[in-house]
């Protein structure tokens, strides 16, 4: 028995620590067998491809770039599959890889400004926001009458960082904690960025409502 190959014993070993979803930087001692890798890939990774593709499309606005980005992400995910703990939050893990791939390879190509100068301030809430015309200028009725394209355009017009948090939170339903991990920022920053993004989105919707004559 002691002559079993090292590879075999590695495959047979069960990971000892329950350390959750860590980044790719820290490779685990576990090593899945080939068929196990494929089953994790097919059962846990591939089901998220719709969300991934739509996210990629909203980052790049081009079908070919979106396809490249998604493919690169999935191939990377497969390469680093050993650092993924089976049964844990695959969607967040994949989104994180995608976001990093986007920053590394695609952001330079993006037609939008690379960085938005905004301040991440904790004390950004102001009840003046609700006292002044915000609620009266943008009526709920106008918003309810909007069609998908109008909302989509409003979202697309936001700078990429703001667009991203809205997509992750409102479209994909990630929690603040998941978003913090995906974007590699503190939860406080997730919240302040969301707040700012929503203000901007509301302004865009207000403008659309006006031009549509709502």
């Amino acid at each position: 028995m002691r002559y079993l190959s090292r590879g075999f014993t590695k495959i047979m070993s069960i990971q000892r620590q329950d350390s959750g979803n860590t980044g790719m930087a820290e490779l685990k001692k576990r090593k899945y067998g080939a068929s196990e890798r494929i089953s994790i890939f097919d059962d846990e990774f591939m089901p998220h491809i719709d969300s991934m593709y739509n996210f990629a499309y909203r980052l790049t606005f081009e079908e070919d770039d979106a396809k490249d980005l998604v493919q690169e992400t999935y191939l990377k995910a497969y390469r680093f599959i050993d650092s993924f703990q089976k049964g844990t939050n695959a969607k967040a893990w994949l989104f994180r890889i995608l976001k990093n791939s986007f920053i590394n390879n695609f952001r330079k190509k993006s037609k939008q400004p690379a960085k938005v100068d905004y301040q991440e301030v904790e004390n950004y809430y102001n009840s003046d926001d609700i006292d002044h015309s915000i609620t009266t200028d943008l009526r709920i009725e106008s918003v309810q009458h909007m069609i998908g394209d109008e909302v989509s355009n409003a979202l697309n017009s936001l700078a990429v960082d703001f667009r991203t948090v809205i997509i992750l939170c409102d479209l994909e339903g990630f929690t603040y904690e998941e978003m913090a991990k995906i974007l590699d920022i503190p939860i406080g920053t997730v919240r302040s960025r969301l707040h700012r993004a929503r203000n901007l989105l509301r302004d865009k919707l207000k403008k659309y409502a006006k031009t549509m004559g709502y």
Binding site: M46, N54, L201
Partner: peptide
């Protein structure tokens, strides 16, 4: 209402089939 609008009215793009095949 805006949050619901985002969730319900924005249409999602279908994934190009050749992408799924290519990845697999």
């Amino acid at each position: 209402t805006i949050k619901k609008l985002l969730k319900e009215k924005i249409e999602s793009q279908p994934v190009p089939l050749d992408l799924v095949d290519s990845i697999k």
